[in-house]
Structure formats: structure tokens, C-alpha cells
């Protein structure tokens, strides 16, 4: 009840954004229940029109478009979440250590991060995927490594401001352990900017995976994925059919929704966010 009340208090754009995210999560989790057919089964002729049997028609191989769209939510969003999560684990822990330890550790890691950030990420990802081949674990790892740089910077900057404060010093002096200080004193105070950054990173990674899949280098067929679905069915656009745009719209709507929520989070915690 309390949760519901506080939901009503937030601005409309954030409310809409949160609702959209909830719907996507619901679809992603219950994909096998909702989808009328399987994501990989060939059911009819290629490029069938919209009909009662196939609500959104069939794709270039005759698979049900709607089912692939629904399963795509699971695959595309799931991989993006995994990549961002890994990026936060790597970037967050190194950034936190850099802020606390300082000195040589900080200098070396920061220089490495500078260099990685100087490489255009799409080019770097293409290069790695050429050599290692495309598979989902490689994809997640490459994106996490490319993206943990920004997480590192923002965590380090935010934690730096907290580490020097008196209450952290007090906790240290009264003999609290290293991890206790991180968990109880520092983390709660940098949560707001990190949460907003998580949203922004998610949008970025999500669009990045979509771009890679669109180029045929992301999630591999027959797994349903929104980026490759656009690419595979793009010829239909030349006949004025909007079906191939639906997966792209699905990507766009989710990113807009997340951006709305992030905008609200940043607004609420403003002052803390400009340090990066």
C-alpha cells in the first residue's frame, strides 16, 4: 500500500516509464506462456501478411513474428541486463577500491581506463568479435569490459567525495572492517548516482547490442533478437510494410521509458550527479 502511494506521487513521465518497464519485464519472464508459438519453429510461408493465425505475420523464414517479438524481449533485455550487471561489478569494485586506496593503484587503473575510453567502442567490439567469434558469453564479456570504464569513473568520483567525510573517518577509527565501511558508510551514499547511471548504461548497452545484432554480429540465429529481426526482414520496408519496424520500436520504447525514469532519478538526486 505504501509502495502504491509513493508510486502515485511521482511525475507522470516517470510513472509511464516505470509502467512500461514493468510490462517488458512481465513479457520477458512469462514469454513461453504468452507467446502463441515457439521462437524457432517454421510455421508457414515466408513473409505472410498479418492474419488471425499469425497476428503480425511471419518472418523471412516463416516463423511467427509475434512469438519472436515476445521471446526477443527475454533474449535482448536479458543479455543487456547481464552485460550491465557485469560492467557494474567490475567497474564498481575497481572504482571503489581506487577511491579508498588511492595512490599507485588509482593512478594505474585510471590511465588504463583513459586508454580504453579512447577507443571507439563499436570498432573495438567488431575487432574482438572478428577474432573470438560471436557467442553470447563473449558478447556479454566484451560489452561489460567496454562499459565498465564509465562505471569506474562515476563510482570513483562519487566515492571520493564520501571517503573524505568525517563519519567514514570515525567508522575507521573505531575499528570497523574494510568491507563494513564500504557496505554501511559509502555504498548507501553513492546509491543515487549509481542507480541513475545503471539506467543510462542499460540504455546504452541495449542500443549497442541491438546495433551489433543488426550488423549480424550480436545474438546469433535462430535465437530471436530484436536487432537481427529488423535486419532479416528489412526488405519488407521497401513494400511499405511496417512489420520490420516493430522490433525497432520495441527497442525504442523501452529506452525512452528507462530514460524517463532516469531523468526523474537525476532530478530527484541532482547535485550529486554533476561530479562525473
Amino acid at each position: 500500500m505504501n509502495l502504491f502511494k509513493s508510486f502515485l506521487l511521482i511525475p507522470f513521465s516517470a510513472k509511464a516509464g516505470l509502467s512500461v518497464i514493468m510490462i517488458y519485464l512481465f513479457v520477458a519472464i512469462f514469454a513461453p506462456v504468452i507467446a502463441p508459438y515457439s521462437e524457432t519453429e517454421v510455421l508457414g510461408a515466408a513473409y505472410e501478411m498479418w492474419s488471425d493465425k499469425h497476428l503480425l505475420g511471419t518472418d523471412s523464414l516463416g516463423r511467427d513474428m509475434l512469438s519472436r517479438l515476445i521471446f526477443g524481449a527475454r533474449n535482448t533485455v536479458g543479455i543487456a541486463l547481464a552485460a550491465v550487471g557485469l560492467a557494474f561489478i567490475i567497474g564498481g569494485s575497481t572504482g571503489m577500491l581506487a577511491a579508498i586506496l588511492g595512490g599507485w593503484y588509482d593512478i594505474i587503473i585510471s590511465r588504463v581506463v583513459d586508454v580504453v575510453m579512447a577507443i571507439p567502442s563499436l570498432v573495438f567490439a567488431l575487432l574482438i568479435l572478428t577474432v573470438l567469434g560471436t557467442s553470447i558469453p563473449v558478447l556479454i564479456l566484451v560489452i561489460a569490459v567496454l562499459d565498465c570504464t564509465r562505471v569506474y569513473r562515476i563510482t570513483r568520483a562519487a566515492a571520493m567525495n564520501i571517503v573524505v567525510l568525517e563519519y567514514v573517518e570515525a567508522a575507521r577509527l573505531r575499528g570497523e572492517g574494510f568491507w563494513w565501511v564500504i557496505r554501511k558508510e559509502i555504498l548507501p551514499n553513492i546509491m543515487a548516482p549509481l542507480l541513475a547511471e545503471f539506467g543510462l548504461r542499460f540504455c546504452f548497452v541495449f542500443l549497442f547490442i541491438a546495433a551489433l545484432s543488426f550488423l549480424g554480429l550480436g545474438i546469433q540465429p535462430p535465437t530471436a533478437d530484436w536487432g537481427s529481426m529488423v535486419k532479416d526482414n528489412a526488405t519488407l520496408i521497401n513494400y511499405g510494410d511496417i512489420t520490420p519496424l516493430l522490433p525497432a520500436a520495441a527497442i525504442a520504447i523501452l529506452t525512452v521509458a528507462v530514460n524517463f525514469v532516469v531523468d526523474w532519478l537525476l532530478h530527484r538526486s541532482s547535485g550529486l550527479v554533476d561530479i562525473a
Binding site: 528489412a234 513494400y239 525504442a252 525512452v256 530514460n259
Partner: peptide, 22 residues
Amino acid sequence: LTSISFPEFFVAYILILLLAVK
């Protein structure tokens, strides 16, 4: 805010659909 959130290929195909095909 919306156009930042759109994948490039989405924008590209919308333009193709509207200005080239239609």
C-alpha cells in the same frame, strides 16, 4: 530525449519508409 533513445537503424528505416517508399 526520444531521439537519443532511438536506435540509428530505427530512425533510418522510418525515414526510408516515409520519404523514400511512401
